[in-house]
């Protein structure tokens, strides 16, 4: 049974201009111990999906259609009290370290212990601290820095602390939202490697959210490319990265430099994503698409299979 199933998920934000459909008709599933990378530019809906998986949509956001099933439980309809038990216990999240995800006035140890003791109220302080020490060893943080405040840590250390926190309760699913964006390349590389290793060690399912397709391709088993609230291409990482079919994916791939790949000119994608408040009859990418035809604007594109497990939402691929 799949760890996570997302079916026909639609998420809307109530705005002054009307309902903004941030996510529209998204389907995917994740097996235990596998990792899925969600890629796309800002505003494509990838973070919204991440938040929906934790039940943390902002007050004006709601799931308009479809469902999210985690380990057999439909979390999209759970009441808040139930959801709170699911959070961190079953789904944890790795935040971006540069973004003040750690509370500046609380010690690191206290912040991790808090996560543990919230869900294990019977665990006393000593036991919780022991657990935190174990986590520190796991992520390679020195124990003497256990009781430091966040500002005393470097960016890489903070990121490790956040990872340690995410692993604190042995969650089945971890959502990593841009976990390495603000780190320098070497630290980023280290952390990604360790993450990958921890994932296989503890058999955790990971949803990896990033705007950088090259990183995702490196880390994840599968990739889902998102554009304007829709999944437009999905499949095994190598397939999607090296054999991209959707014009948007192709543009995305070529807009990042790779050390390994051939030297190509970086191609920025001209144009902007469409406005998501109204209804869009045809393909959402057609305004920026080099393969655009008249029919693209009129009809919804259909999913096509282009390889083993490799699908693309385009009538011309």
């Amino acid at each position: 049974m799949a760890l996570l199933t997302v079916e026909n998920l639609g998420i809307g934000y109530q705005t002054a201009k009307g309902l903004l459909k941030a996510v529209d008709g998204v389907n995917f599933s994740l097996e235990p111990g596998r990792s899925l990378g969600l890629v796309g530019e800002s505003g494509c809906g990838k973070t919204t999906i991440g938040m929906a998986l934790m039940g943390l949509l902002p007050p004006n956001g709601r799931i308009t259609e479809g469902r999210i099933v985690l380990d057999g439980v439909e979390i999209s309809t759970l009441p808040e009290d139930e959801l709170r038990k699911v959070r961190w216990n079953e789904v944890a999240m790795i935040f971006q370290a540069a973004m003040n995800a750690l509370n500046p006035v609380k010690r690191i140890s206290a912040q991790i212990m808090e996560a543990i003791q919230t869900h294990r109220p019977d665990m006393d302080d000593d036991a919780a601290l022991l657990r935190v020490e174990g986590l520190f060893n796991l992520v390679g943080l020195p124990l003497e820095r256990l009781h430091d405040f966040p500002h005393q840590y470097s960016g890489g250390m903070k990121q490790r602390a956040i990872i340690a926190m995410a692993l604190a309760l042995n969650p089945k699913l971890v959502i990593a939202d841009e976990p390495t964006t603000a780190l320098d390349v070497i630290v980023q590389d280290q952390i990604l490697k360790e993450t990958k290793q921890l994932q296989s060690q503890f058999n955790i399912g990971i949803i990896f959210i990033s705007h950088d397709i090259s990183i995702v391709a490196d880390v994840c088993h599968d990739i889902g490319v998102m554009y304007a609230g829709q999944l437009v291409e999905s499949g095994p990482a190598e397939e999607v990265f090296f054999n991209s079919q959707h014009p948007y994916t192709q543009a995305l791939v070529s807009s990042f430099p790779t050390l390994a790949g051939p030297k190509t000119k970086l191609a920025p994608i001209p144009g902007e994503p469409p406005n998501l408040t109204g209804t869009i009859p045809g393909c959402r990418f057609c305004d920026r698409c080099p393969k655009d035809t008249a029919s693209c604007k009129l009809d919804h594109p259909k999913w096509q299979q282009v390889g083993p497990g490799h699908h693309v939402l385009c009538d011309h691929c």
Binding site: K85, V86, R87, W88, N89, F95, A101, E114, T118
Partner: peptide, 12 residues
């Protein structure tokens, strides 16, 4: 701030 979001994600 993000630590509020994290706190919420932690299930507090």
């Amino acid at each position: 701030e993000d630590y509020i979001l994290l706190a919420r994600a932690k299930g507090l």
